[in-house]
Amino acid sequence: MKKIHVSLTVNGDAVDYLCEPQETLLDALRDHLNLTGAKEGCGTGDCGACSVTVDGRLISSCLMLAAEAGGVAVETVEGMANGAELHPLQRHILDGAALQCGVCTPGILVAAKALLAQNPDPSETEIRYWLAGNLCRCTGYDKIIRAVQSAAAEMRGEA
């Protein structure tokens, strides 16, 4: 099968891959770039475990073709921490016990970061609706919502 050459940036670095026409951006990240933080929970855009941002916009990477990603800037969970320094969302998720199995956590982190980029002071309801596309089966969401609230407060300089 003829492969397609794609150049883009991922977490700030210029990268490229050869993909098959039917492969998704998620496939490319996981199988060609070895960035397995984003997970495939459904492959149909229902679970959000594959959440990444493309040019700043939150998407399900299982719904974007790898071949369409030429020239875009992708951010994944692997790019959230600054070296050894965790992003506040990562710290609050961990300290708040807002993960159990942890498989949805990368998607939740990427989605929550995208929320706070456009709304630094979301209400509980706004957080709940923003994260409604990110399924978590372990936690009942309670501690996730609280962790996003406390990370947002810290990022606003209130905590």
Binding site: L35, K39, T76, V77, L86, Q90, L94, D95, V103
Partner: peptide, 23 residues
């Protein structure tokens, strides 16, 4: 008490290897 879990850093940085993550 409620210390952070020992496997936490891997899971919040995307490094933890789940079933489909090993090649």
């Amino acid at each position: 008490t409620t210390p952070p879990r020992p496997d936490g850093i891997e899971k919040i940085t995307g490094k933890a290897l789940f079933g489909a993550d090993l090649n």
